[in-house]
Design a protein around this nucleic acid. Structure first.
Lengths: 219, 219
DNA sequence: GCGCTAATGTACGAACTGGTACGTTCATAC
DNA sequence: GTATGAACGTACCAGTTCGTACATTAGCGC
């Protein structure tokens, strides 16, 4: 990949799959950077070894390309969530592990976080219209459910916390740290994504989730 | 206000302040709804009793109008934060009160939340360029600092939690619930902004913050 | 080889969009 | 009442931007 972000290398040969995925990769960068209306179809094509014509040939249009970008990005996240094996861990350690894993994932995929934000400014209509995405149940929920059950049984988790709420709690912390780092930094002068603070916030998230689940509130 | 969102009423008379604020109000709606690049200058003008010309006359351009919108929106939030009087409350009750106040504020101002998200997709460059905004220290931080000090002194808060981190925690929860409600709803089928769930999440936030501050983690 | 279709490239256009040149009208000072 | 500048409106332009008509080429089946 060149400094300009364009995809290069290899001779130009006819390859449908390659053209499609190259388009998708560049579009992901471009949409994440500029937003749906901010991104330019010509610009996406220019950063590719193919032409704008191919976007319409393979995807049909700007919005469909954007939807394909979302589908790929969410697909990757879901796939990553799969390889968590917390079934036979201590519940407290397990939930902390899961939180840290989510933390690491968002940190490693800032463009995914940006896309989520962008899709929200569009009221998630593209997700709603995509059968692939709207039927995408979160496997992570099952994992959380298992951990919560085990924790309650062991007497470690005193409350009847909802799995989806725990997921929401973890997501809100992880996403905010990445998504809102610019406004937060500009307003308060602290870069939430500062590598020096990474460990601090990672630990804070774990502490937070564990504290919430082990405190005796709600009685 | 008509069904189309346009401002009406009163006869047309020359009134600079009125024209400016009307422009600002409509622009706030429009930018919050469509984003910076998605919003149309012509559309903003059309929903006003004045014309596009006035946007350039008073604000200079689209981006400056957008910046003015941000300044007004943040100004309102900061002003609202002022009238919190938690100085002589029990620290635990005080921090819960502050969290709930933030919760209510974000719930009542969804377009502010949207603007924050939009500004983040633009790397907060408009905030950074605005002296008004970049110098806007958060009075809320002082409040949190006071509560934290009182709580530590009373022995209620066992940890040395940072005021800015507590603010971040509260913000992340409140903002996520509003900002990400569309993607969350589309993916998991739960509307985080459902009025029926409002009390639940409001209580959850309080529990969360208190649990974090009163747990003995970090030792 | 040869034909046939998928894949690709070029050139162009129609609509949109931010911004402005220029002219007009209102309100206030005196 | 009238001079003067602030406030406002109209018409328009130049650049942009999504999308497409049309031409072309490469690779696969036979």
């Amino acid at each position: 990949m060149s400094a300009s972000g364009a995809v290069e290398g290899d001779e130009r040969r006819r390859d449908a799959e390659r053209t499609k995925s190259e388009l998708l990769a560049v579009a992901t960068e471009e949409f994440a950077r500029r937003g749906l209306s901010g991104a330019r179809v010509d610009e996406i094509a220019a950063r590719t070894r193919t032409t704008k014509r191919m976007i319409y040939y393979y995807y049909g249009g700007k919005e469909q390309l954007y939807t394909a970008v979302l589908e790929k990005a969410y697909g990757e996240i879901r796939a990553a969530e799969q390889d968590v094996d917390v079934a036979h861990m201590d519940p407290v350690a397990a939930i902390r592990r899961l939180a840290e894993l989510t933390f690491d994932h968002h940190e490693a995929h800032p463009s995914f976080v940006r896309l989520v934000g962008i899709e929200n400014t569009h009221d998630a209509v593209h997700i709603a219209r995509s059968p692939t995405l709207s039927n995408l149940a979160a496997p992570a929920l099952d994992v959380i459910g298992q951990i919560l059950d085990a924790g309650r049984e062991a007497g470690a988790f005193t409350v009847e916390a909802d799995a989806l709420d725990v997921h929401m709690l973890i997501s809100s912390f992880c996403i905010f740290r990445i998504a809102n780092r610019h406004t937060f930094g500009a307003l308060f002068g602290r870069d939430l994504a500062d590598p020096a603070l990474r460990g601090h916030y990672r630990a804070m998230l774990g502490d937070l989730v564990v504290a919430y689940l082990t405190s005796g509130h709600g009685d």
